[in-house]
């Protein structure tokens, strides 16, 4: 049962990744892209968790922790950059 469910979950997460990527490329302003990038990082955390179940390697959860941490720092950095009035190239 678990391998079948994992295939479905992989498919759904890939679809979500595709949608977030479309918004990342199309997004009219830079904050839209930052939001899409944060969602991509969140989806990748889910991907890593599902892959840990798939392969049975529980150490992959450390990767998920690091990805969540870097995504948070990237969001904070982008927001600071926007608010301080960096070069906008929408």
């Amino acid at each position: 049962m678990i391998p079948f469910v994992i295939n479905i979950v992989y498919f759904m997460l890939s679809l979500a990744l595709l949608f977030a990527f479309i918004r990342l490329t199309r997004g009219p302003s830079l904050p839209d892209r930052v939001v899409a990038l944060e969602l991509v990082a969140s989806i990748v955390v889910g991907y890593v968790g599902v892959h840990a179940i798939d392969t049975g390697v529980s150490s992959l959860l450390d990767v998920a922790i690091v990805i969540a941490l870097t995504a948070f720092l990237a969001a904070i950095g982008f927001a600071r950059f926007l608010e301080r009035g960096g070069r906008r190239n929408d």
């Binding site: 759904m12 679809l15 949608f19 977030a20 918004r23 989806i43």
Partner: peptide
């Protein structure tokens, strides 16, 4: 996965 798909549909 359903919640994440909903989030992606919403963002799109």
């Amino acid at each position: 996965a359903a919640f994440m798909l909903l989030a992606a549909i919403g963002i799109l």
